[in-house]
Write a protein that binds this DNA or RNA. Structure first.
Length: 430
DNA sequence: TTTTAGTGATACAT
DNA sequence: TCTCGTCACTAAAA
């Protein structure tokens, strides 16, 4: 993740801090980062589809830590995936599946200890887990938002808008997106390292990041390798810095590299760089003030004059739901975007992956399914209450399906008026 | 020396 | 039907 080898080069400007420094401030939190760390503790349960509250407990502990310091958290979750990263994601998914098979094999063979290692490698952090945290945030008045796509640009946008004063994350990509105050390596004692963009000018001569323009910085990470480019073989951040200082334009860099026999360029590299520049600068974010979808930075007018260019950009910054048709595509004109749908995604009501289905809390979903499996009598199921309603509604309502059709009576009347048991219906918590 | 890429150990929890 | 590992150490190349 992020830029390999970038953080070590910033060692000299990393400030050892405690959370006390941010007292009375609002800090953005990379929700996925915390979810991922927390999921190690309950990898078995997550992979085997068993209920667990351990990852929520991890959040609760950390949120209490912030509360003691009088810090207001603003949790930011990742949303949908970008088309440009689809190949990386299918590769990871395949790897997770392989690890899952190994984990189950080891577990069945009785090698519990080694099985855990592979269970942890096969955990899949899902939006449903995020929803579990979101439900906690709602009942405890904690700020949160689900980004339309990646959390990184969303957090930087909140910083630009002055809604937060710093970002808690382990991802060095944030600096490329333009983050001003990055807080990394936060531990349970409230100690962390702070990296400020303002301190770039104080970096040593061999890595003068302060002398680079934002565009040169983006070129640097593209050469060294980032989330959107595979980089160039034998080029790390130091070599990339030398190259960028010598030729500031990417076109010059590429023609120069092609002439030398020193480095080998992949066929797709030029395209990767182009895509990366779009993703870093113009990715879709949600503005919680205006309640509308926007972009991290404004897309320059001349860039989107041609239709072909338009299509290309949309794959990099994320496609949105069109107003009226409800179809997901690369809408340019903000007037034609269904902002209401995207507001529901931002609030965690709709699944950010498909942008249509209701986002369910993982633990509630599993509890309900377990009720179904347990073959409980009607009376006990009734205690969960409730009236079934048309989509979308808030949590705690139940929809149920029988003979392939949705019922819309109250659950109690449905069960009391028939001899149905829970095994006959498929309950959904909506 | 400097820089890059690969390897192995390692993981959570009150 | 559904989203990210990392650190310290070492060999090897420049």
């Amino acid at each position: 993740m992020g830029i390999p080898g970038l953080l070590p080069q910033l060692k000299t400007i990393q400030k050892q801090v405690t959370l006390k420094k941010y007292m009375h401030q609002t800090l953005a939190i990379d929700g996925y980062g915390w979810l991922h760390r927390a999921s190690c503790a309950c990898a078995f349960e997550l992979v085997m589809d068993k209920p667990t509250n351990k990852y929520l407990q991890f959040f609760i502990r950390r949120l209490q830590l912030l509360k003691r310091m009088n810090i207001k958290p603003y949790i930011v979750f990742d949303g949908g995936s970008l088309f440009v990263k689809s190949q990386t994601e299918t590769r990871r998914k395949k790897k997770r599946l392989e690890n899952k098979i190994i984990a189950k094999k080891l577990w069945l063979a009785g090698d519990r200890y080694n099985a855990m290692e592979y269970f942890q490698k096969s955990v899949d952090v899902t939006p449903e887990m995020a929803k579990c945290i979101i439900d906690y945030c709602k009942t405890h008045s904690i700020l949160y938002i689900v980004a339309p796509f990646e959390a990184d640009p969303q957090m930087v946008y909140l910083e630009k808008m002055g809604l937060i004063q710093g970002i808690i994350s382990e991802d060095s990509d944030l600096l490329v997106f333009g983050c001003k105050t990055l807080i990394t390596k936060l531990n349970d004692q409230g100690e962390a390292l702070e990296i400020s963009k303002d301190d770039f000018s104080a970096l040593p001569k061999n890595f003068p990041l302060g002398e680079l323009t934002e565009q040169q910085f983006r070129n640097l990470v593209c050469l060294a390798g980032c989330d959107y480019t595979s980089g160039i073989w034998k080029v790390g951040v130091i070599t990339a810095m030398k190259i960028v200082k010598q030729y500031s334009e990417m076109d010059d860099i590429l023609t120069q590299i092609k002439q030398t026999e020193k480095f080998r360029l992949s066929k797709t590299f030029r395209k990767e760089v182009e895509f990366a520049n779009y993703a870093f600068q113009y990715q879709r974010v949600f503005c919680p003030v205006a309640n509308r979808i926007t972009t991290l930075n404004n897309i320059p007018g001349p860039l989107i004059n041609s239709h072909a260019e338009k299509i290309k950009i949309m794959g990099c910054i994320g496609s949105v739901v069109e107003k009226g048709s409800g179809i997901r595509k690369g809408v340019i004109d903000t007037k034609n975007i269904d902002h209401k749908v995207h507001e529901m995604i931002a609030k965690g009501e709709l699944n950010p992956m498909d942008m249509t289905s209701i986002l369910l809390n993982r633990e509630k979903k599993i509890r309900t399914r377990n009720l179904y499996k347990l073959d409980l009598p009607v009376g006990e199921f009734d205690s969960l209450n409730n009236k079934a309603k048309q989509l979308p509604v808030d949590a705690h309502h139940i929809m149920f399906k029988r003979d392939g059709s949705f019922g819309n009576k109250s659950a109690s009347s449905f069960f009391l008026n028939s001899s149905t048991t829970v095994t006959d219906v498929v309950p959904y918590i909506v």
